[in-house]
């Protein structure tokens, strides 16, 4: 396969996001829906980078989104009167990335030494643990959270703030999604991807083959966590302009991430987009028809996928197009 050809699978990803963005721009009334769909796709893309590629489930994943949200919140809350203007948003993203990276390093240092079930046990409390640390030690206002809409308004002006939280925040979410997809493909096409593939299928054999499994797990874990931090900064902090620990660390979002990745197909490039769109659209309509029921309906579907169709939608599609012209576009 020629070098350029190996990166063809990014084309359908870009087309899908462009279509979604275009739809939102053409129908401003649907922008909210588009923003929500973009959030779910991004959540899936970022989560998939670790869960899909390594086969480990991080049940505390939402903690990285939460800590990223705090990164942005802190930047705006403490720097709004320094005359930095929009630059505080940039600092916010940098802080979000740093915070989520540091947290992932700390969690990874313990959890990534552990295998399978023990890994799950180590991660399932991360979000709760972190929430209670913030509340208990009264870090960053503790349980009262940070409300920074006024600060943001003072820093960048009312008009800019409106556009920032209703439009640019969502565009930034799209950017994170594309970054996650590109990183996924770059991983897949390089040694990292092969190492992850090997350890996903047989960790002991991978070690014996000369693969430093811990190193590659950490690479995937940190990348995935940092993207989650950026997602939190854009999709939660900038959009809502407030943050409470109880929301920022709700396990609910980990559940949604798992659903999206499994629906689409764990470890595939297109999977999170397909999963995110299916889940987002279904949730949108269920919220109208049967409010509050989406998890009750999705949980049995998830069990069906795990037990009977573990490849997910894109996984099945991939098998179908094998040997056809579409093969090099869908992975």
């Amino acid at each position: 396969m020629r070098r350029a050809q190996r990166y063809y699978p990014i084309i359908p990803v870009l087309v899908a996001y462009a279509m979604l963005l275009g739809y939102g721009l053409l129908f401003p009334g649907k922008w909210q829906l588009v923003a929500q769909l973009a959030f779910y796709c991004t959540l899936g893309q970022a989560f998939n980078l670790f869960m899909g590629m390594t086969g480990y489930v991080d049940f505390g994943y939402v903690a990285f989104i939460g800590i990223g949200t705090y990164g942005m919140a802190i930047s705006i809350y403490y720097l709004y009167d320094k005359g930095l203007g929009l630059f505080i948003v940039v600092i916010g993203f940098i802080l979000a990335a740093i915070f989520s990276t540091l947290l992932s390093l700390a969690v990874g240092a313990v959890a990534l030494r552990l295998r399978g079930a023990y890994f799950a046990i180590a991660t399932i409390g991360v979000n709760e643990g972190f929430r209670y640390l913030i509340e208990g030690a009264r870090i960053w206002n503790g349980a009262d959270g940070i409300i920074f809409s006024l600060h943001l308004k003072k820093a960048v002006g009312r008009e800019t703030m409106m556009v920032l939280s209703t439009f640019w925040a969502d565009v930034l979410v799209f950017t994170v999604a594309i970054a996650a997809a590109v990183l996924t493909l770059v991983f897949m096409r390089n040694k990292v991807g092969y190492a992850l593939m090997a350890l996903r299928m047989d960790e002991d054999a991978a070690k014996v083959m000369g693969i430093n499994v811990t190193k590659y797990k950490i690479i995937a874990f940190i990348t995935s966590a940092t993207l989650a931090g950026l997602l939190g900064a854009a999709a939660w902090a900038l959009k809502l302009t407030y943050i409470y620990p109880v929301d920022a660390f709700a396990i609910h979002y980990t559940v949604e991430a798992i659903i999206i990745v499994l629906l689409g197909g764990a470890g595939t490039l297109m999977g999170p987009i397909v999963g995110g769109l299916i889940y987002g659209v279904a949730k949108y309509f269920l919220a109208i028809v049967l409010p509050g029921f989406q998890l009750l309906i999705f949980a049995p579907i998830i069990i069906t996928i795990i037990v009977i169709f573990p490849e997910g939608t894109v996984g099945i599609l991939k098998k179908r197009v094998m040997g056809t012209a579409l093969q090099k576009y869908i992975i």
Partner: peptide, 13 residues
Amino acid sequence: ENIAIGAMFGSAG
């Protein structure tokens, strides 16, 4: 891919 993984991470990896 299986065999390539061996080459990629082996002694000359």
